[in-house]
């Protein structure tokens, strides 16, 4: 068995609001192995982005990790001081955000923004930094890199900006990249180009990626394993093919069934009634119970244990716990 690059154990994150403390993430545990792409899916408000912020130690001021462990190569990140964090962030772990335009500084040339990472994390000379930056820009598919080095973000198209953001994330050769909806703001044809780029990165650089998206098509295309999150919990996880062809949790099933396509033309689309409960609305028991069509009595009282379906496929749902199967 390989050792994971990153492993998270029983992590809870909560928000301190004016009228009390509310749990936003509960019992998050998963690992990322070398050369693996892990997808995280779920509706907005389910805690996908919060999970990535917790890993990088960039949680909002009123949020904190209550307990649990985030281990990066056997160092517990949560016990690290801010100075040590600075060393790791950008060089060992890096992040790609959804909106390339807001992630880039409009007042600096893109070349400068990429080489800044090297300035911070390495002792390379100015000349080598520029060389490395230009070769990195070429690697992410910007053909006229020498000319583009001195251009400003607004002079580039959305696809090119996203390539710059990816170059910034890659230049220090991190072990793990967290990509938070990196293709959502892009056109389909550009999206296909960027996904192709991610696949090449995985192939040649052996970088691990955590890929956050709500688009099942993208997830299927790029990920090895997928975690399904609902209301701050991981409710199902397993290999991509297994989850898409054979989803077990009623929430995952609902999400996959509600995707429109030409084969469903003329039919009413499947919908999941209701919406994701907000932080303050979350009660005990399974958070999905209110929207679930196959709810049991126990669902409202107790959060289900994790059940192993097949190999790495696990699901947290009472339907698959032993007692429940008998009552069905």
């Amino acid at each position: 068995m390989q050792t994971p690059i990153l492993s998270i154990e029983n992590m809870d994150v909560s928000f301190q609001l004016s009228d009390g403390k509310y749990k936003a993430l509960e019992d998050i545990s998963f690992s990322v192995f070398p050369d693996e792409v892990v997808g995280i899916v779920g509706e907005s408000g389910c805690g996908k982005s919060l999970t990535s912020q917790a890993i990088l130690g960039i949680l909002p001021k009123n949020a904190q990790v209550d307990h649990g462990e985030i281990a990066y190569k056997n160092n517990n990140l949560l016990e690290m001081k801010e100075n040590d964090w600075q060393e790791i962030r950008g060089s060992a772990l890096s992040m790609i955000f959804q909106e390339p335009m807001t992630a880039l500084n409009p007042l600096l040339t893109v070349g400068k923004q990429i080489s800044e990472v090297l300035k911070k994390h390495t002792n390379l000379s100015k000349k080598t930094r520029k060389q490395k930056t230009i070769s990195m820009m070429k690697e992410v598919g910007l053909s006229r890199a020498e000319e583009l080095y001195n251009s400003y973000p607004h002079q580039l198209s959305g696809g090119m900006q996203q390539r710059i953001v990816i170059a910034i994330a890659l230049i220090a050769e991190p072990d793990l990249i967290i990509a938070d909806e990196p293709t959502t703001a892009l056109d389909v044809t550009i999206q296909a180009q960027i996904l192709e780029l991610f696949r090449k990165l995985k192939q040649y650089r052996k970088t691990s990626i955590i890929f956050i998206s709500h688009d099942w098509g993208v997830i299927r295309h790029i990920c090895d394993r997928v975690l399904v999150m609902y209301a701050g919990r991981i409710v199902e996880q397993g290999s991509v093919t297994e989850i898409i062809s054979n989803p077990k949790h009623p929430y995952t099933k609902g999400l996959i069934q509600s995707i429109p396509d030409h084969q469903k033309k003329g039919e009413e689309l499947y919908t999941i009634a209701g919406k994701v409960p907000s932080l303050k609305e979350r009660k005990g028991g399974c958070p999905f119970a209110d929207r679930c069509s196959s709810r049991l009595d126990i669902c409202k009282q107790q959060f289900p244990e994790s059940v192993v379906m097949e190999g790495t496929h696990t699901v947290k749902c009472h339907l698959y716990l032993k007692g429940a199967v008998e009552t069905l």
């Binding site: 509706e43 509600s258 429109p260 689309l269 499947y270 919908t271």
Partner: peptide
């Protein structure tokens, strides 16, 4: 919109 909400609106 999210997929599940999108399905509701399309319906």
């Amino acid at each position: 919109l999210d997929v599940s909400v999108q399905a509701q609106i399309l319906n």
